[in-house]
Design a protein around this nucleic acid. Structure first.
Length: 449
DNA sequence: GAATCCCGCCAGGGA
DNA sequence: TCCCTGGCGGGATTC
């Protein structure tokens, strides 16, 4: 089974490698227009789309999974394949290395196969936590994760200076907002919820500067990210839901439209922060409502031990297997990867940001490095809540899955244009056949060529 | 049906 | 005028 999985992954990678070898020449450059203007961004998107379609014709895990599930055979698209978190993970994998100095947005969008707009979202969040710094138009300086603790410390100090941790006063609950003109009281309907937050006492002024600046800037994703992070840093709350965060940051729960927009942005931010492993998505124990928890390696080791890191690492997608975000469903990946527990953990970001002793933690913050890894490597993810496979998952389903794999292996053979890749694939096939005969004790599959 | 969040329109602003 | 930037919300997808 493991070998089969490796085989599938190898084939998946081969498809991506070959695609890159084919290069952009074969990809049509479509002159898309908007407002009468031809946009390079659209061209890039078109190129990425064309490349994606070509790859999907050849081979990818989506088609593999679709094959497993007849209902999905003609429904391979999954929005999760294109999530901002996944894209951010790829972005970090791409640039999180020693020799990265500056990052061009065009280069990033090109290499990641996404339109520039998406890159803006990511760099804005990364810049807010100190991973990047803007150098010039279209250019960012890579600072890496070593600067993150310092930035977080500054955010915490800044929040303290701004009286971010004021004791909650229902009669004077100025919002934490980064919007202007909305300084109304917190909705009484959510007061009980805010009471829960009273230990955080976040209902205060977040930033004087955020109220005086230009409106557009005040609503920027970068500032919202900082405020969102401050919520975690300055509260004792274990979990914060995006609704709560939006209410606090917006301060006007009556305006459902603003709430909706704010929550949308918070989803974007949370996805990026999740992929950096700064927060993780989970649920309130009582309400089962989705919420986010601030992470630190210490907490993770205490909770899930190193095993959880391995598990997480197993779910981490390897960058370079593709140029776009077309990928398999994350949940499916998880379940598949869970069966392959021995991958070595990547380097982990050691930032325990316990709210009470953050300064001490900052002093201790170090980057643990593992051999065979990039010196700046970190574990990114998770991209979704940890899915714990049910103990005693029926053997029946396992058998069926194996049968599906076998059916797939015997009936599907991707064709690679590159002869070397074809040969390499043949090598994997031979390995599989060998294992199949020797280990599984079965007759060779007839359809294998 | 609610939650999630991708996608791209379009306005602001700088070169 | 062009192009970079990014706020914003429709609506598709997932839960």
């Amino acid at each position: 089974m493991l070998l089969l999985l490796l085989l599938a992954i190898a084939m998946w990678k081969l498809g991506a490698v070959e695609e890159r070898q084919r290069g952009g020449n074969s990809s049509p450059v479509l002159p898309l227009e908007r407002g009468g203007k031809q946009r390079g961004v659209r061209r890039l998107a078109a190129v990425a789309k064309a490349a994606k379609e070509e790859r999907e014709r050849d081979w990818d895990m989506s088609s593999l999974l679709a094959f497993q599930d007849p209902e999905r055979r003609h429904h391979a698209y999954s929005r999760k394949q294109k999530s901002l978190g996944l894209l951010c993970s790829n972005f970090l994998s791409l640039y999180n290395r020693d020799d990265t100095e500056s990052i061009g947005l065009d280069d990033a969008s090109n290499r990641l196969g996404v339109e520039r707009r998406r890159i803006y979202d990511i760099v804005n969040v990364l810049e807010s936590v100190g991973v990047l710094a803007r150098k010039a138009k279209n250019q960012y300086t890579w600072k890496g994760f070593v600067g993150v603790p310092q930035v977080l410390m500054e955010l915490k100090k800044e929040a303290s200076k701004e009286n971010f941790l004021n004791t909650y006063d229902p009669t004077n609950c100025a919002k934490v907002s980064d919007d202007e003109g909305d300084e109304k009281s917190i909705n009484p309907n959510i007061e009980s919820r805010e009471d829960k937050l009273s230990s955080t006492s976040v209902i205060s002024r977040l930033s004087a500067s955020s109220k005086t600046g230009d409106n557009r800037r005040e609503k920027s994703l970068g500032l919202l990210t900082k405020n969102f992070v401050k919520l975690f840093l300055c509260s004792n709350l274990d979990l914060i839901s995006l609704d709560d965060a939006a209410r606090i940051l917006l301060g006007d729960a009556h305006n459902s439209f603003q709430m909706r927009t704010k929550v949308r942005r918070l989803y974007d931010i949370a996805n990026v922060l999740s992929s950096m492993n700064l927060i993780e998505k989970t649920h309130h124990e009582e309400s089962r409502k989705p919420a986010f928890r601030w992470l630190g390696i210490k907490g993770k080791l205490e909770n899930g031990s190193a095993g959880s890191f391995n598990q997480k690492e197993c779910r981490k997608r390897v960058f370079g297997t593709e140029i776009t975000n077309t990928n398999l469903k994350r949940n499916k990946v998880n379940s598949l990867m869970d069966e392959k527990p021995n991958r070595k953990p990547n380097i982990q970001i050691q930032m325990q940001l316990n709210h009470d002793n953050m300064e001490n933690d900052m002093g201790r913050n170090q980057i643990q490095q593992q051999p065979k890894q990039s010196s700046k490597g970190f574990v990114f993810g998770p991209f979704s809540p940890v899915v714990v496979p049910k103990v005693g998952d029926s053997d029946k389903s396992n058998v069926r899955r194996v049968q599906d794999w076998e059916t797939l292996a015997s009936s599907y053979r991707p064709q690679y244009h590159n002869q070397a890749l074809n040969d390499l694939f043949a090598h994997y096939v031979e390995a599989w056949k060998s294992w199949y005969v020797e280990v599984a004790g079965k007759q060779p599959l007839q359809h294998f060529s």
